[in-house]
Amino acid sequence: MEKYLILLAGPPATGKSYLNNLICEALPQTYTVSPDEFKQDMADSVGFSTAQEKKELEQQVWELYYQALEVYMRVGKQFIVTEYPFSYKQKPYFEGLSERYNYHVITIRLVSEFETLWQRRIQRDLDASRHLSFLMSHYRYGDTLQDRTQADELITKQGFWDIIEARQYNHFSLGKLYEIDVTDYSTVDYAPLLEELVALSREGR
């Protein structure tokens, strides 16, 4: 059976979670693992009081994330999907794990015109559904902030641009690459991509 690691890449606010859900609907046998889910869980269970503590907690998150990814690979799950604004930092780990466990890697890179991306990003960060730990240098379970514009780690437009450029989110790829422009969600057709993935699942039987 052929096995696949699918990396949903691209800058924040490009709709990676939405595509992740579509893939899971098309391929119910898919297993997912997300660094951001680990970050939320660790923030709620452990918390942090300073930016340095937050940084140290995130280091633990990445260790747990790679361990979870390796468990799925070790037991031979056919499709593993993971989403994040991946950069050069994660690339060596994916290369090593996919080679060790004989996984084909597929990168689906979502890109967008920056101004549109920025509007989506700030709207998402200011929404009450956004986990507060992503916006603060201090967080404990149960913390609230009614006015999200007062969050002390709310990213600026320039800061958003700088991190996209510095980490080359728009250029990350590993294995077979599909790039999809999501500047206008109404024009995006994921059907051909999903059909290709379903075809891969049938070929591997």
Rank of each mutant, 00 (worst) to 15 (best):
residue 66 Y to H: 15
residue 68 A to V: 14
residue 70 E to Y: 04
residue 71 V to S: 15
residue 71 V to M: 15
residue 72 Y to F: 15
residue 73 M to D: 12
residue 76 G to D: 11
residue 78 Q to H: 11
residue 81 V to D: 03
residue 81 V to P: 01
residue 83 E to Q: 08
residue 84 Y to G: 08
residue 86 F to R: 04
residue 86 F to E: 04
residue 87 S to G: 12
residue 91 K to I: 06
residue 91 K to E: 13
residue 92 P to R: 00
residue 93 Y to P: 04
residue 93 Y to F: 10
residue 98 S to V: 03
residue 98 S to M: 03
residue 99 E to W: 03
residue 101 Y to S: 06
residue 104 H to P: 03
residue 108 I to N: 00
residue 109 R to S: 11
residue 109 R to Q: 05
residue 112 S to G: 08
residue 113 E to N: 06
residue 113 E to M: 04
residue 113 E to Q: 01
residue 114 F to R: 05
residue 114 F to G: 08
residue 119 Q to M: 05
residue 120 R to P: 09
residue 120 R to Q: 06
residue 120 R to N: 07
residue 120 R to S: 12
residue 120 R to A: 09
residue 121 R to H: 12
residue 121 R to A: 08
residue 122 I to M: 09
residue 123 Q to M: 12
residue 123 Q to H: 13
residue 127 D to H: 13
residue 129 S to C: 06
residue 134 F to A: 15
residue 135 L to Y: 04
residue 138 H to E: 03
residue 140 R to W: 07
residue 140 R to P: 00
residue 140 R to F: 11
residue 142 G to D: 09
residue 143 D to N: 11
residue 145 L to W: 03
residue 146 Q to P: 07
residue 146 Q to W: 06
residue 152 D to G: 07
residue 154 L to W: 07
residue 156 T to F: 01
residue 158 Q to P: 08
residue 159 G to S: 00
residue 159 G to N: 00
residue 162 D to M: 04
residue 164 I to A: 01
residue 164 I to V: 02
residue 165 E to I: 06
residue 166 A to R: 13
residue 166 A to S: 06
residue 168 Q to D: 07
residue 169 Y to F: 14
residue 170 N to L: 10
residue 173 S to I: 06
residue 174 L to W: 03
residue 174 L to Q: 10
residue 174 L to P: 12
residue 174 L to V: 07
residue 178 Y to K: 12
residue 179 E to M: 12
residue 179 E to I: 12
residue 180 I to D: 05
residue 180 I to F: 05
residue 185 Y to E: 14
residue 186 S to K: 12
residue 188 V to E: 13
